[in-house]
Each structure stands twice: as structure tokens, then as C-alpha cells.
Amino acid sequence: MSSLSEPLRIAVLVKEVPDTYGERHLDLETGLVDRAASDAVLDEIGGRALEAAVSHAEANAGTEVVALTVGPESAAEALREALAIGADRAVHVTDPQLGGADLGLTAEVLAAAVERLDADLVLAGNQSTDGLGGVIPAMLAELLGRPQATNLDAIGIGAGEVCGTRASDHGTMVVRASLPAVASITDRLPDPRFPSFKSTSAAKKKPIETLAAADLGVAVEDPAAPRSILISVAARPPRAGGMKIDDEGDGGTRIAEFLAQNRLV
């Protein structure tokens, strides 16, 4: 991939999520994630997108990488980590009104922030590991009126375009989109680097701009806008005890039957 003549500005979508490897809980009153119940971390998939952007920036002087998030005040920690990994600056959209925002509203806010940033490329993970919505990149492309290259297993950022490969049911597609564009990547891309002590302390000095919905001209309470409505919320049912097979000479057959019945083979 040849380097660009004009330096790019890449907005990378990052997100604070409850630690995927720990216990996670829903608040059964609000239906929202109970953030106090888990450790908050930078979403891995966003970290991978950031790594792709930062690697590109290292090889292409002048490229600016901006980490962008919509989230509660605590999400500033995730942004600090993004800055430690190598983002140049961060934008934090935080507003009590946005608590529990659905995918559509979130995309609206993000689109407004991207416009304000004047980013050439929006890079995101294909789906967050908490909500697993997987539609934000497409919604953004729609709202911004830009082409999209989503679910990329490999990515190249080059002269006026973003390209990459994408797995399909029948093989691998090579996709390209001219900039400005929206791209999303999968967990096939490398993990983000571990920040060194130096980059962690340097991150403390990098700017984080904090914005409210109003700053972006987004009307949260727009009665005309379609919004998803939460109808019910339930805790995950407790795990039922497993089935015990005592081997009376037919153990193998019964295990095979069990697997077949449950369509596990």
C-alpha cells in the first residue's frame, strides 16, 4: 500500500465495556449493564481497530488518530488507555441524557462527532463485546453518506482508499472504498500493543475533549425519531445441573445419542 500524499485523520471508535472475562450483570430495573458489578476495560475489538490505525500512523508521518467514544464519565479511563496505545487525542461524548441510548441514537451522536472532527476514515470494531449490535458502522456510513468496508479480516489504508479482505460463506472477498469512508475490522486483526510506562505517562498529557449531545446539535428527545423500546429484562437463568451417564456397558452409545439429540455432532 503506498502512503498518502495528504496526511489522514482517522477516527477510531472505542468503548468502555465490562470485562468480558469476568462476571457480567444487567441492572434488572433499567435493563442497562450494571457497570459497578464488573471491572471496566477498553473493548478488545476497538483496541484492535486502534492498533491498525496507530500502526498506519507510525508508518505515515502526519496521520492523526483520534479515539472517539460515547459513554459515561468513567469511559475517560478507556480513552486514557487508547491514548497510551497511541491515539493522538480523544473525544469523549458524555451526557446523562444519553444513558441507555439505543443503536440509532448512538450512531447519530457518533456521526455528528465525526463530522465535527472532519475525519477521513472512521475505523471501528465489527461489533462491541458487550452489546454485540454490529450495526453501528453501517448506520454511520448511512448517516454520513459514505461508503463502507465492513468486517475486514485484513486492512490496508492507502492512497485515497481503504481496502481489505472479508470472509464470506464461499470464500474471501477483496473490498475497497474510497475515502472518506467507514471501515470495521474483525478479531482476526492483531491485539493492540501493550502500552509502555512511557506511553502511559505521555497519555496523561494528551488532550481529551469532552462534549455533550447539545454541543453536537443532536436532539436526544426528538419525538419523531424512531427509538427502540425495552419491553422486558431478565437475568440469565441459572445453569441447570448436567445429565449424568453411568456407564453400564452402553456409556459410549448413550453419549453419542445425547450428542446427536442435542445436534452437537
Binding site: 509502555s196 510506562f197 512511557k198 506511553s199 502511559t200 505517562s201
Partner: peptide
């Protein structure tokens, strides 16, 4: 694997 340069650049006390 870390080089001496990377160790020096790491910011460790």
C-alpha cells in the same frame, strides 16, 4: 523480544 533501545525507551524506573 525487547532490544536495549526499547528498554531505554520504555519509561521504567
Amino acid at each position: 523480544a525487547m532490544s536495549a533501545q526499547e528498554v531505554l525507551d520504555y519509561g521504567a524506573e
